[in-house]
């Protein structure tokens, strides 16, 4: 554990809690992509199955349980409790275009051919692109609520901080995992446009709207 990894995790946790807070407080999931949330739930479920097979630390297990619970909770709020507020007309990205390639790639580029390892690799690849339906939705509606922007910023920062963590781990532990690094870089690049808008608009007190 290093400072970049810890900040990354906390940023990830903040993002997930911000989203739940937004939905609960406004009693609405307007502007939030249910497809992205579904993809994240698939990601956590595929990756954290290792809760049953290996123990790393209390910190790790607790975080995994929180991420899983929060993602299923978000789905419950979006598709059940506040379903009438879900803006599905604008949430039209085809997620099979993300799931199928991620699945195929996880059979091609993987460290070890075991079920758990392929599921873990699939989760890494799928996570890299899981935000696309949400970004597509923002581009379709042309705007995002400020709290949604904060959510996206925290979520994007998490993997960017992980990249710093991997650089740090490379120099201090000689640790290098190209699967997570390449996927993490793709994931962070997808947020670049959004980061730019966030810094130039939201941080100056303006609402995020596209030109």
């Amino acid at each position: 554990m290093n400072i970049f990894r810890l900040c990354g995790d906390l940023s990830h946790l903040l993002a997930i809690l911000l989203l739940l807070f937004k939905i609960w407080k406004t009693r609405s999931c307007a502007g939030i992509s249910g497809k992205t949330q579904l993809l994240f739930t698939i990601v956590y479920t595929a990756r954290y199955l290792d809760l049953f097979t290996s123990f790393v630390s209390v910190y790790n297990s607790v975080m995994k349980i929180v991420f899983l619970t929060a993602s299923y909770g978000t789905l419950y709020l979006m598709f059940y409790k506040f379903k009438p507020t879900y803006d599905h007309n604008h949430d039209s990205f085809r997620i099979l275009y993300l799931i199928v390639p991620a699945l195929v790639l996880s059979f091609i580029i993987v460290h070890v051919y075991t079920v758990m390892e392929i599921l873990w690799t699939f989760s890494i690849y799928l996570e890299a692109v899981a935000i696309m339906p949400q970004l597509f939705m923002v581009s379709r509606t042309g705007e995002a609520e400020t709290i949604t922007s904060h959510y996206l910023f925290a979520l994007g920062s998490y993997r960017a901080l992980y990249i710093l963590n991997w650089i740090y781990r490379y120099y201090t532990e000689d640790f290098l995992d190209w699967i997570t690094i390449m996927a993490g870089i793709v994931q962070t690049i997808l947020y670049c446009d959004f980061f730019y808008l966030y810094i130039t608009k939201v941080l100056k007190g303006k609402r995020l709207s596209l030109p």
């Binding site: 990894r5 995790d9 990830h12 290792d50 290996s54 790393v56 630390s57 790790n60 975080m63 995994k64 991420f67 460290h111 070890v112 390892e117 873990w120 992980y162 963590n165 640790f175 290098l176 995992d177 190209w178 699967i179 997570t180």
Partner: peptide, 10 residues
């Protein structure tokens, strides 16, 4: 690189 090492990350 053994993939196990990566699994200590979230």
């Amino acid at each position: 690189v053994k993939s196990d090492e990566a699994h200590d990350e979230l």
